[in-house]
């Protein structure tokens, strides 16, 4: 087995810089879905990717984008494999990713409890428009499976909330 950690780190940065197809303000690295990049041999690379939700249709676009970026970087053989375990969690979204989500108008997910248990319902979700914590749930499911639809009671604007998983 050929190992070149410097090359792998470089390719990992490249793959990680690919924007998420549904939330283009985030990169795949910030979303936390890139699990690893391995150089299998000269010109042969395997990328491990995990879906946010099992049925997330964006995974195919992500795979194609990673392949294209690495091809353009001179890697002829790119294989993107999907891994399910350990399951992705919204806690895998980086601090920078959370900041970008809020800036984009999507309330970022709250952190899970230290025991990995469910998020306490008393923790409020802040309106990404006016900053009020007085917001209400309209629907547990929004434009994509990973988001819930909420409304700000203060400024009356509806907004998406990246719900905790």
């Amino acid at each position: 087995m050929v190992t070149d950690t410097r090359l792998e780190a470089e390719l990992r940065d490249l793959a990680g810089s690919v924007p998420d197809p549904e939330l283009p303000v985030l990169t795949l690295a910030e979303l936390g879905v890139l699990r690893g990049v391995r150089v299998d041999g000269p010109g042969r690379v395997t990328v491990r990717l995990t879906p946010t939700y099992t049925g997330c249709p964006a995974i195919e676009a992500m795979s194609a984008d990673i392949e294209r970026v690495l091809h353009d970087h001179g890697v002829p053989e790119v294989s993107v494999v999907t891994v399910l375990a350990p399951a992705w969690s919204t806690d895998d979204i980086s601090a920078e990713g959370r900041r970008k989500l809020a800036e984009f108008g999507i309330a970022p997910p709250r952190a899970h409890g230290a025991d990995g248990g469910p998020v306490p319902l008393t923790l409020s979700v802040r309106c990404p428009h006016c900053g009020s914590t007085d917001t209400e749930l309209l629907s547990r499911f929004s434009s994509t499976a990973c988001k819930a639809l909420r409304r700000c009671v203060a400024c009356r604007e509806p907004f998406d909330h990246f719900k905790e998983l």
């Binding site: 879906p51 939700y53 049925g55 997330c56 629907s139 499911f141 929004s142 639809l149």
Partner: peptide, 18 residues
């Protein structure tokens, strides 16, 4: 909202089925 919710649940199930 229910149109979207039911479709999202269906999508989760389809992913699991695949």
């Amino acid at each position: 909202e229910e149109e979207v919710a039911l479709a999202n649940i269906a999508l989760d199930l389809l992913g699991q089925a695949r």
